[in-house]
């Protein structure tokens, strides 16, 4: 894994875009007719949603490549992508809850997209837990990859089952329709989160790489370490 600075630059650029997009969406975008100022939550919620799905799809790709091609690089990126996906999913559920309260009067409205995200959150958090309990690095890589493939394939099934289950009771529109919103803050923030996550996933993958390398490196005999001035 490389040592170059590009992920820091990318992540920094992402953060800058997020500040720009958020300020725009918060203070300068026009007010929505029916939802009022609460609509402004969409300027962070929708970008988070897009990127959560993107990161988890990347995790799926890493899992497939890890199983087919092997090599520690894909496993490291897999670990990074799963962790990033869990963070974004948790954030997404929190944002969705905050949006639902003033809009529907409840903290959770069983919206199919959001509920699917919650299920995904638990599924991938469980995979991170699995990873923590396996000591053998080879088994760890194979098992996490298998688990990610299995969980990802479930996504459309979960979505349709929840949507169907919910459709008989509620008919509210999903929050992701932002046809009345101003598009620019949304796009800027979407790229903001994207660049931020690209940078962070790469950095997190390097961390995973280093940890695994340290795991399998033979320990230096302390005499040698002292003699060579490393201690």
């Amino acid at each position: 894994m490389g040592n170059s600075r590009w992920p820091f630059v990318t992540a920094g650029l992402g953060l800058a875009l997020l500040v720009w997009g958020s300020v725009w969406g918060l203070f300068y975008a026009p007010r929505e007719v029916y939802m009022g100022d609460v609509q402004r939550i969409m300027y962070v919620h929708v970008p988070t949603a897009w990127n959560a799905m993107l990161v988890l799809t990347f995790a799926f790709a890493c899992a497939v490549l890890s199983l087919l091609r092997g090599g520690w690089g894909w496993d490291a990126r897999l670990e990074a992508a799963v962790e990033g996906g869990v963070v974004l999913s948790a954030l997404l559920c929190t944002q969705g809850s905050i949006w639902a309260r003033p809009t529907w009067g409840v903290w959770w409205d069983w919206d199919p997209r959001l509920t699917t995200t919650a299920v995904l959150l638990f599924a991938f958090a469980g995979i991170l837990a699995l990873r923590g309990f396996v000591d053998d690095p080879v088994k760890r890589a194979v098992w996490t990859a298998v688990a990610v493939v299995i969980a990802y394939v479930d996504v459309p099934l979960v979505y349709f089952s929840v949507r169907w289950w919910n459709s008989l009771h509620q008919l509210q529109s999903t929050p992701e329709t932002v046809s009345r919103a101003f598009h620019w803050p949304l796009r800027i923030n979407a790229f903001g989160v994207l660049f931020l996550m690209i940078g962070l996933v790469e950095l997190r993958a390097r961390l995973a790489w280093q940890r695994r390398a340290a795991e399998s490196a033979p320990p230096l005999p302390s005499g040698v370490a002292v003699a060579t001035g490393r201690l």
Binding site: S22, L26, R31, E32, V33, Y34, M35, G36, D37, V38, R40, I41, V44, H45, L91, T94, Q95, I98, W99, R101, P102, T103
Partner: peptide, 16 residues
Amino acid sequence: GVIEGGWEFVIAAYVI
């Protein structure tokens, strides 16, 4: 709008 105010939720979402 139909929904009045709600700025505390918007701020909460952005801050979180």
